[in-house]
């Protein structure tokens, strides 16, 4: 049957051709584009405003990093004479202050934490127990397991005392140099005013300040507590807030270290901030802002949710050392010269 227009004439073939081309074009256009709307703003998780840091508040500048030839770096420590120790899969590497490798020790496994005693012995937290290496890297001792639930996340040495943070049992264990458990510190005890550690995830750090006082992070309460070696609580301060002055999330600060003047350096998970606090616990400024560690952690298409800040230390020159998991490197930050 021939299709005719109103005047009774047949519709020319070219009209059919144009109509067919237009129809095909429309179909291709509809099929090639996804016409569904993108997720609205109310579905987006926004923390960009907390990531932005005024450059004038960044008080440190980055130096050449150390990039150890060890896969899966997990722990970092410094010794009083200025050596830098980094541990990863099956190895501990020792660097001088100039960043040159001094020694390399083979170990079995991947330490969860690391410390060095004043006489150079290396203490490795191996999830549920501590292993000790002589200063020359030869194995010295393997201390007994702290149990199935134990998960050591930090270890600190001061004289004859070794303190290990056990995130699994939410307690700090004080050892003597032979590996005997002397004291459990931080168990909740209302009669002694001890609130108890809240450790939702394996971020639980311990350290000593410049006066030799022992400090433990209480990550679930977003602050620090200081204790005597007897286990008595000396003081505590908490700053739960996502603002620059505070600590947010389930477990922050993730790592802490004191400088020689008593100021405190902290790292956080979530917002990868490295901050500096004064002796009276006031925010002085930033060592590094989140953008230093990853370009856009909160971007819509980023699946990198784990914190890149694996460990923190301060060396004998008061430089801040950050173990960066993304780059598998020791990032070094030095305070800017005052103008």
């Amino acid at each position: 049957m021939t299709v005719r227009n109103k005047t009774g004439k047949p519709i020319p073939a070219w009209v059919w051709g144009v109509a067919t081309v237009i129809a095909i074009g429309v179909v291709v256009l509809l099929a090639s584009k996804d016409w569904r709307r993108d997720p609205p703003q109310s579905f987006r998780y926004e923390v960009a405003q907390y990531e932005r840091v005024d450059p004038s508040r960044v008080l440190f500048e980055e130096r050449e990093p150390i990039t150890p030839d060890v896969p899966g770096l997990t722990a970092l420590a410094t010794s009083p004479e200025g050596r830098i120790y980094a541990a990863g899969t099956n190895a501990v590497v020792v660097y001088g202050l100039d960043g040159r490798e001094i020694a390399r020790h083979a170990i079995n496994g991947s330490p969860t934490c690391l410390a060095v005693t004043a006489d150079g012995e290396i203490l490795l937290g191996m999830t549920d127990h501590v292993e000790v290496l002589h200063a020359d890297g030869k194995p010295k001792a393997r201390w007994p397991s702290l149990g199935e639930r134990a998960h050591l996340t930090s270890i600190a040495a001061n004289g004859e005392d070794i303190y290990a943070a056990d995130a699994g049992n939410r307690v700090v264990v004080r050892f003597d140099r032979e590996g005997n458990v002397v004291q459990h510190i931080g168990k909740a005890d209302a009669s002694k005013g001890i609130p108890g550690f809240v450790v939702p995830s394996p971020y639980f750090d311990v350290t000593f300040d410049n006066t030799g006082t022992f400090w433990a992070v209480n990550p679930g309460r977003h602050g620090l507590e200081s204790y005597r070696s007897s286990g008595a609580l000396i003081s505590a301060w908490y700053r739960p807030s996502i603002e620059a002055e505070g600590f947010s999330g389930c477990c922050n600060p993730s790592h802490v270290a004191f400088r020689s003047d008593g100021s405190l350096v902290t790292t956080e998970k979530g917002l990868a901030r490295v901050k500096l606090y004064s002796v009276d616990q006031k925010l002085v400024g930033f060592v590094a802002q989140p953008a230093t560690f990853h370009d856009s952690p909160m971007g819509a298409f980023s699946c990198k949710l784990e914190t890149p800040l694996v460990d923190l230390a301060v060396d004998s020159k008061d430089r801040v050392l950050v173990l960066d998991a993304n780059k598998n490197a020791i990032r070094i930050f030095e305070e800017k010269a005052s103008e």
Partner: peptide, 29 residues
Amino acid sequence: VQCGRCATHCVLNPSAVKCVHSYPICGYC
């Protein structure tokens, strides 16, 4: 990567994709 498209691109409304919770992992914060 938590882009939000599971909510807007499923042929069902609301989506057949739901949040689930692993209690052994949760910190009960």
